[in-house]
Design a binder for these strands. Sequence first.
RNA 1: GGCCCCAUCGUCUAAUGGUGAGGACAGCGCUCUUUCAAGGCGUAAAUCCGGGUUCGAUUCCCGGUGGGGCCGCCA
Length: 411
Amino acid sequence: MEEIRTRLAPSPTGLLHVGNARAGIFNFLFAKKSGGKFILRIEDTDIERSKPEYEEDAKAAMRWLGLNWDEFYRQSDRKEIYSHHIKKLLENGSAYVSDVIRFKNPGRIVKFYDIIRGNIETDTKDLGDFVIAKDEKTPLYHLAAVIDDFEMKISHIIRGEDHISNTPRQILIQEALRCPTPKYAHLPLILGSDRSKLSKRHGAEALSEYKKLGYLPEAMFNFLALLGWHPEDDREIFTKEELIEQFSLERVQKGGAIFDKRKLDWISREYIKKLDGKDFIEKLKPFIPEEWRNKNLSGAARLFQDRISKLSDFTTEAKFIFELGDYDPALLIWKNASREDTKKRLEKAFELIFSSGDVVAYAKKEGMGEVLWPLRVSLSGLKNSPGPIEIMEVLGKEESLKRIRHAISKL
RNA sequence: GGCCCCAUCGUCUAAUGGUGAGGACAGCGCUCUUUCAAGGCGUAAAUCCGGGUUCGAUUCCCGGUGGGGCCGCCA
């Protein structure tokens, strides 16, 4: 049986975006499911627009996601190969030179079978004699892609729906070159909230932005795999291995899918919650100021592990643990309580904490909100935060008393 | 405009001739509760329209409508 070989072929003219990443994931899953090979090919035939830093970004993004490629190619390294095929096309009359090199279009109806969509038929007549190379050494996209897919023995081309209309052209070239036609599967597009193809104007489209925001790669992988594909059961959380096992092109959706950040956040939270405590702290480190590391990081981490959607949230949400911000004294007052009562209660709480007494028992007697609200605010300086007892455990007695004293002085 | 693709809750989707059209996210409500979050329970919410085919259409066919993609010496 023929080996399954798939590829992701980004052009290094911009940061790798989520559409590329999702296509990469599907190619990867499909290949790995059948023990095949997944190939990364950089399509940099456009030397004007291609930049090495974008190639680096693509590789970094792929590594981050865990999309390990088995083989790597770069089109600019393969000039002789293309040149050989261009000559062949010129010799057998399939192409001709007229300033540039054009493909002699036979203008037939081209049919192909798409694994996701079924039969697709196009009349190539109106495509005309399209340009396939600038000169004998400089192939353009369609030609280079066809030659590479052939040379690299790509068995399945799994790519975005935006390539459907390119396929007939490429099949024509394959025929002229006497190359077999690979199997095709055109994926639905990833859409922005207005249902048009996801792009810069929809906000974050580069994969690196999600890394920067502190989404876990496993969560991103999981989320993207579910965009346009669905397993046989109703599960939503999968490891990479489980996805490899479950994946099939037959279960890929035909319609475009909107990239829903809220669902991403939910999946991300699920992954963060499952993290081992120590691991969570390690992952947090790149997102926090240096000074936080030696303070109450592990306690703060415990407090926020199930309260954040992405690692960068910790930086803003847990900030008060490390430095108490300024706040309005009025915030200390619970509902209809008076300033004086609030002050008295905080003083009492201070004494109890100082002497290791039971604040909760006092709160139960005096009124939970009456005691715990001002206490919590004096510790966090915030309208919303974790509970005061939890915060004190993290802050320690000394710092807690200091903050309560400060609150009292504000009243 | 030409060619092509697509169409189930707001969103991601399940169900490929027979279901009360299922799940998840988001929403809302209740619960918990000092606030927030998390958790538990519950609730609302969809087959684009019109014709066929059939005993029976979300499902098959045709036509509309709507949305999207591609129309470069970019990929």
